[in-house]
Nucleic acid binder design. Sequence first.
RNA 1: GCGGGUGUCGCCAAGAGGUUAAGGCCCCGGGUUGUGGUCCCGGUAUUCGUGGGUUCGAGUCCCAUCAUCCGCCCCA
Length: 422
Amino acid sequence: MTGTSQKSRRELIQRPKGTQDLFGTEVERWESVESLCRLHFQNAGYQEVRTPVFEHTELFERGVGEGTDIVNKEMYTFEKSERRLSLRPEGTAGVVRAFIEQGMARWPKPVKLYYMGPMFRYERPQAGRQRQFHQVGLELFGLDTPAADAEAILMAMRLFEQLGLPNLSLQINNIGTAECRERFKAGFKALLAPILTQLCLDCQTRYGSNPLRMLDCKNPGCQAIYAQPDLQAFLQTDFTSEDCQAHFAELLKLLDALKVPYHRNFMLVRGLDYYTKTVFEITSTNLGAQNAVCGGGRYNTLVEDLGGPETPAIGWALGMERLMALVGELPVKPLDYYLVTDQHAAAFDLAEQLRAQDYKVEVDLSGKGFGKQLERAAKLNARQALILGSAEVHSGEVQLKNLASKEQRVVPYALLLQGNPE
RNA sequence: GCGGGUGUCGCCAAGAGGUUAAGGCCCCGGGUUGUGGUCCCGGUAUUCGUGGGUUCGAGUCCCAUCAUCCGCCCCA
């Protein structure tokens, strides 16, 4: 092999930046969390929806919003026979597209869906952020009630409680409708106009494009300005309409009754354009700088914006990588039997019968001596070894050996299959 | 796109310009071809992410580049 081909091989076996190989016990942890999510959703009447990993680029441009960083600089976009397609950077747009295209608007209300799968954003990787990452999300279509908001939030909070996540905080806010925000922007800009030059350049840009996002600014100087009493007073007067305020108050009442602790965060705004009324984020101090494990909110105009019938909705998504960083140890199914054998036909037959009884069983395939096979059984931490040689096949028995106690005895097949003769 | 940290075997890791690049774990083979995890013996980096440069001499110094981690931006 020449030097250059070695080099290209080295590059070939290097995974793309911001992607991850998942294997071994880590995959088992993911699987058990995923099945817990499924069960949790299904028990509450949510159905899984599986949409494509790529969609027409325009869907995201119109859905997520043309002004957002996600569509401006983070999408993986490619062209194929005159069509612009993008790897999905988030899940809601695709689910809404499916909702419209599959006629779910005519299903009995509400329509309750969940999804899970990979998402793609072209960003610099850091703790809790990758280019291919995984989300689990929930969407509830057709209702604009505080109860719908409460259920969506409760579904997330109870899931995290079941998983025992540490140091969680539910941050919640009401950003009202588009009209409410126009009213807000006017007042907010009027207050800031005299001191605009004291703000950072980013905020000065946002002043013109998206004033709400200014509140998210990490610049200490800007934060100090936004923390000033007169501005806070303005923020906390709740600029939203009476209807929005009543909706939100009712939601908080429900959360109180359910003993779901929350923090009303007047500074919480979200980066996607489609949110209305309720927005929330669930953060943990056990994560790095990217501390949100779950985020979502109400989006009452998105279905219509994408060409569907007027349909209010609320939803959220959680980041699996961030979630898994918070989930502690999970039990791994142990190996019940390791089959030591030089009689493979009989061994496979026995293994299959045991597996049918839900035992975890491995058959040695090496053809090596029984000593080496037992060595492997011990390395795999098998509870028991089953030794099945020609003598045992002839007598219809098997040697059952407890690898911890070293006890070994002869057991007829039939007895072994009747129950665990430990 | 910008800023900082780190790159020596699959993993952890010694090595501070000078003979053949420690050690541990894992893996493989043997001691023990029908009885294990302990133990013993042996094997596994012509090479230090890559490419240049300085030097009589470079894993050790310089430059560039790549990768990775953390942070900014933004978000799950």
